[in-house]
């Protein structure tokens, strides 16, 4: 039987459907978004605005405030998702862990639930008077720790981040478990024989062999934090004020509540570029570190 020899024409024919779909749902909206960003809507008609939207953005304190919210969420998510997930994965990788399958399922389950559903559940947890959290604190005699979890502008962003960590930590655990399966088991056995503690094994033996997996996890956490939208929208509507508003919701509100499609597009395009640059910069730094660390190992 003769093997299929693709010609240039057949390759294009095979690629065409996916290229068309990609172009329609990614390239076209981005190009239209860029075109919008140089216009502003007046009476539902686009008028040329030059770089006015970009100039407005530079001086828009609200935008930089909500971008700060994204940075806070992203930073905390990386710290509290990726790092604990790594140790949980190393722990779960031990064959002697109790009810291993149950624990894996329990940790991963929130990942597959819709953010809207989990947000509604957590609204009930954070409810001021009858919420699970404040009620539990009351039962434990810790009334002084009770908070207005979703109403205090100083706290609300951390409440939202806690929900994100809870929901997506399972994803990182699974990623790390997959990475762990590729590790040479002899190194773990050797560490065990040498009497290394759990922490020493995780940090000194496992981590150096999983730097690429860690890099993937951090980039996922980074992009997840930058594009967050559903949780604040459902749980707080972005409030009080802008205390829990994130960039995606800010762009949405500007476009669809204020009918300023041009400025909304400007924000969206800028954030897309910023996200891209940040993720690429992270990848570059991690690659450099990985190369250096593997070079040192080789030496």
């Amino acid at each position: 039987m003769q093997a299929f020899q693709p010609t240039r024409r057949s390759l294009w024919a095979l690629l065409a459907p996916s290229v068309l779909v990609y172009g329609f749902i990614v390239v076209v909206p981005v190009v239209v978004g860029i075109w919008f960003s140089f216009h502003e809507m007046r009476n539902f008609q686009m008028e040329w605005a030059g770089v006015a939207n970009y100039a407005r953005m530079a001086g828009d304190g609200d935008l930089w405030f909500v971008l700060g919210n994204n940075v806070t969420i992203t930073g905390l998510a990386i710290f509290f998702q990726v790092m604990p997930a790594f140790f949980i994965a190393v722990l779960m990788n031990r064959k002697d862990i109790w009810a291993e399958k149950f624990v894996r399922t329990a940790v991963f389950l929130p990942v597959v639930i819709s953010p809207v559903v989990t947000s509604f559940v957590w609204i009930l947890v954070f409810n001021l008077d009858s919420g699970l959290l404040n009620s539990t604190l009351a039962v434990l005699g810790l009334e002084a720790w009770q908070q207005r979890w979703l109403d205090d502008p100083e706290i609300v962003i951390y409440s939202l981040t806690a929900v994100l960590v809870w929901q997506y930590i399972g994803l990182f655990v699974v990623i790390f478990l997959a990475g762990l399966s590729a590790i040479n088991p002899e190194t773990l056995e050797a560490a065990d024989v040498d009497g290394a503690s759990f922490f020493q094994t995780a940090v000194l033996v496992v981590l150096p062999q999983m730097s690429r997996t860690v890099a993937v996890a951090m980039v996922l956490a980074l992009s997840g934090g930058l594009k967050i939208f559903e949780h604040p929208l459902v749980m707080t509507g972005g409030g009080p004020g802008l205390a829990s508003t994130v960039v995606a919701q800010f762009a949405y509100d500007v476009s669809f509540r204020r009918a300023q499609f041009g400025y909304g597009a400007t924000i969206a395009i800028t954030i897309t570029v910023l996200s891209l640059v940040t993720v690429l910069a992270c990848l570059w730094i991690i690659n450099r570190l990985t190369v250096r660390s593997s070079g040192e190992t080789d030496a």
Binding site: D151, D152, P153, G238, G239, P240, G241, L242, A243
Partner: peptide, 11 residues
Amino acid sequence: KGLQDLMTDSV
């Protein structure tokens, strides 16, 4: 949004 901010002394 501003009235929410007034309620939390944020503005």
